[in-house]
Simulated scan of single mutants.
Amino acid sequence: MKDKNLPIQGLKVTLHKRPNGMPKESDFQVSNFQVKGPKDGEILVETHYLSADPFQRMRLNAFSGYGKTISLGDTIKGRIAGKVIISKNPKFQKGDFVEGMLGWKTHAISDGSQIRAEYAPGVTQIDKKIAPIPAWLGILGFPGITAYFSLIETGKLEKGNTVLVSAAAGAVGSIVGQIAKIYNCKVIGITGSDKKVKHLIDNLGFTYALNYNKGNISKSIKSFAPGGVDIFIDNTGGPIADEVYLNLNLNARVVLVGNISQNNQSSEIQRKDLQNMIMRNRATVSGFIVYDFEDRANEARKKISKWIKEKKIKYDQTIEVGIDNAPRALISMLKGGNIGKQLIRLPISIKENT
Score class of each variant (00 low, 15 high):
Phe288Tyr: 10
Tyr291Asp: 06
Gly237Asp: 06
Leu256Ser: 12
Val244Asp: 06
Leu250Glu: 11
Phe224Ala: 00
Pro239Cys: 01
Lys272Pro: 03
Val229Ser: 03
Thr236Gly: 03
Pro226Thr: 02
Asn276Met: 10
Gly228Ser: 04
Ala241Asp: 02
Leu246Ser: 09
Pro226Ile: 01
Glu294Tyr: 08
Glu243Cys: 07
Asn235Glu: 05
Arg296Asp: 15
Gln265His: 14
Ile240Leu: 10
Asn276Phe: 13
Ala283Asp: 07
Lys272Trp: 09
Thr284Tyr: 04
Asp292Arg: 08
Ile269Met: 09
Gly287Asn: 05
Ala283Ser: 15
Ser220Leu: 00
Ala283Met: 09
Arg296Val: 02
Phe232Ala: 01
Leu248Gln: 10
Glu268His: 06
Ala241Tyr: 02
Ile289Cys: 00
Val257Asn: 10
Phe224Ser: 00
Ala252Met: 07
Val255Cys: 04
Asn259Arg: 14
Gly258Trp: 07
Asp234Glu: 14
Gly237Glu: 09
Asn247Asp: 07
Phe293Pro: 04
Gly238Gln: 03
Gln275His: 05
Pro226Val: 02
Glu243Leu: 07
Val229Asp: 05
Glu294Met: 09
Pro226Phe: 00
Val290Asp: 01
Ala225Gly: 04
Gly228His: 04
Val229Met: 03
Phe288Arg: 03
Glu243Pro: 11
Ser220Lys: 06
Arg253Tyr: 03
Ser220Gln: 11
Ala241Asn: 08
Ser220Asp: 11
Asn247Leu: 06
Ile269Tyr: 02
Gly258Cys: 05
Ile289Tyr: 01
Ile289Leu: 05
Phe293Thr: 04
Ile233Glu: 15
Ala241Phe: 04
Asp292Tyr: 08
Ile240Cys: 08
Gln270Ile: 13
Ile260Ser: 15
Lys219Asn: 07
Ala283His: 08
Gly228Arg: 03
Met277Pro: 04
Val229Ile: 15
Gly227Gln: 11
Thr236Cys: 09
Gly228Asp: 06
Lys222Glu: 07
Met279Asn: 13
Ser223Met: 01
Asn251Leu: 08
Asn247Pro: 10
Met279Asp: 09
Arg280Tyr: 13
Gln262Trp: 00
Glu243Asp: 15
Val244Glu: 06
Lys219Gln: 10
Lys272Ile: 14
Leu246Arg: 13
Thr284Glu: 11
Asp292Gln: 09
Asp234Ser: 08
Asn263Gln: 14
Asn247Cys: 14
Ile269Gln: 11
Ile278Leu: 09
Asp234Gln: 05
Ile221Thr: 01
Phe224Gln: 00
Arg296Asn: 15
Tyr245Pro: 12
Asp295Asn: 14
Asn249Arg: 11
Val285Ile: 14
Met279Trp: 15
Ile221Arg: 05
Asn276Tyr: 13
Ser286Gly: 01
Asn251Pro: 00
Phe232Leu: 15
Leu250Val: 10
Gln270Gly: 03
Glu268Lys: 12
Gln262Ala: 14
Gly287Lys: 01
Ile233Thr: 10
Val244Ile: 14
Lys219Gly: 00
Gln275Asn: 06
Asn251Ser: 06
Asn251Lys: 09
Ala241Cys: 07
Ile231Trp: 03
Ser267Glu: 15
Val285Gly: 07
